[in-house]
């Protein structure tokens, strides 16, 4: 049984056995949940299908959320990409469009997979689905990579937190980016050690990021932070695949994230009392919505 209290241990175990992290996690979870590997794999495939459907829906949707605060940005991004107006390459620009798309579907009460939360649901699928498309990968490989994302997420949830209310946005979009980075590395043929470094690098980049939703809603700045979170994941994966290592080991980064989250004032942890939520424009929006 895996204890899920150290990503380094998980990576070392995989290295020693000559397996991928996803294989270890799948085998362990099948035992833990008293189900077969195939049953778990198919459940995860179902999640991937929900993710893909949300991305597709969001890319073409023009509808606004109930508050009227968000909607239609994914479509704008997609149009820019399709017209060749994106500054970055296809992988990044398509990833951004999908991250916005899924987060917008969430804001419009559409069907999504919390990954690890509803507020950060766009990051992992945006990057993995884009890599699948652009590199013509088999669906089964992408499903497997979700077990790596989940396994690392379990460690983060256990040692720190994946909730904005507990640890700020670093714990929510930061964790999602760290999980996505590791999954992307594995998907593109990186080693378990590279996955650990990617996870560490993505999380390091957003330490201290606060959770400050305008009017308390999962829209501003959450939707755009899904896009920047997915970009962060891609940057970390790219560096790890190039052989770049995190100087601070991954488990220590998670410890630091926990310490920063604990030190963060309550006003910056999803209470909508600080950060962007406390700006004049945000307060005006909140007043209008509550009226």
């Amino acid at each position: 049984m895996i204890s899920y209290d150290s990503i380094q241990e998980l990576a070392d175990k995989a290295t020693k056995k000559g397996k991928r992290i996803s294989e270890l996690v799948l085998e362990d979870q099948a035992l833990h949940m008293e189900q077969s590997n195939d049953e778990l794999f198919e459940l995860m495939r179902k999640s991937l299908h929900v993710m893909a459907a949300a991305a597709e829906k969001g890319l073409t949707s023009q509808s606004l959320s109930a508050s009227g605060l968000s909607g239609g940005d994914a479509n704008k991004m997609k149009q820019a990409v399709d017209a060749g107006r994106a500054l970055s390459g296809k992988v990044l620009s398509e990833t951004l469009a999908k991250a916005l798309a899924i987060a917008e579907v969430n804001a419009c009460m559409g069907r999504i997979v919390a990954a690890p939360t509803a507020g950060s649901c766009g990051i992992i699928p945006a990057l993995l689905l884009t890599l699948k498309e652009e590199h013509h990968l088999a669906e089964d490989q992408v499903v497997m990579s979700l077990f790596t994302a989940a396994g690392l997420g379990m460690v983060i949830a256990q040692k720190a937190s994946v909730s904005g209310a507990e640890g700020g946005c670093q714990a929510e979009c930061g964790s999602a980016a760290a999980m996505a980075a590791a999954a992307a590395v594995e998907l593109m043929g990186g080693t378990p050690q590279m996955c650990a470094h990617a996870c560490a690098m993505a999380l390091k980049s957003v330490l201290g990021l606060v959770c400050d939703p305008v009017a308390g809603l999962v829209e501003v700045p959450c939707i755009k932070r899904n896009a920047s979170g997915a970009a962060n994941a891609l940057v970390a994966a790219e560096m790890a695949l190039a052989g770049i290592k995190s100087t601070i080991p991954v488990d220590e980064v998670i410890g630091a994230m926990k310490a920063v989250g604990d030190a963060m004032p309550k006003t910056l942890k999803e209470t909508a009392e600080g950060g962007l939520a406390d700006t004049p424009t945000a307060k005006k929006i909140a007043r209008e919505i509550r009226r």
């Binding site: 995860m44 179902k46 999640s47 929900v50 959320s65 579907v105 969430n106 804001a107 419009c108 009460m109 559409g110 069907r111 999504i112 997979v113 919390a114 990954a115 690890p116 509803a118 507020g119 649901c121 992992i124 979700l146 994302a149 989940a150 997420g153 379990m154 949830a157 994946v162 999980m179 809603l217 999962v218 829209e219």
Partner: peptide, 9 residues
């Protein structure tokens, strides 16, 4: 962690 499948937000 990857789940639940749910309707947002």
């Amino acid at each position: 962690i990857i789940g639940p499948i749910m309707v947002g937000p």
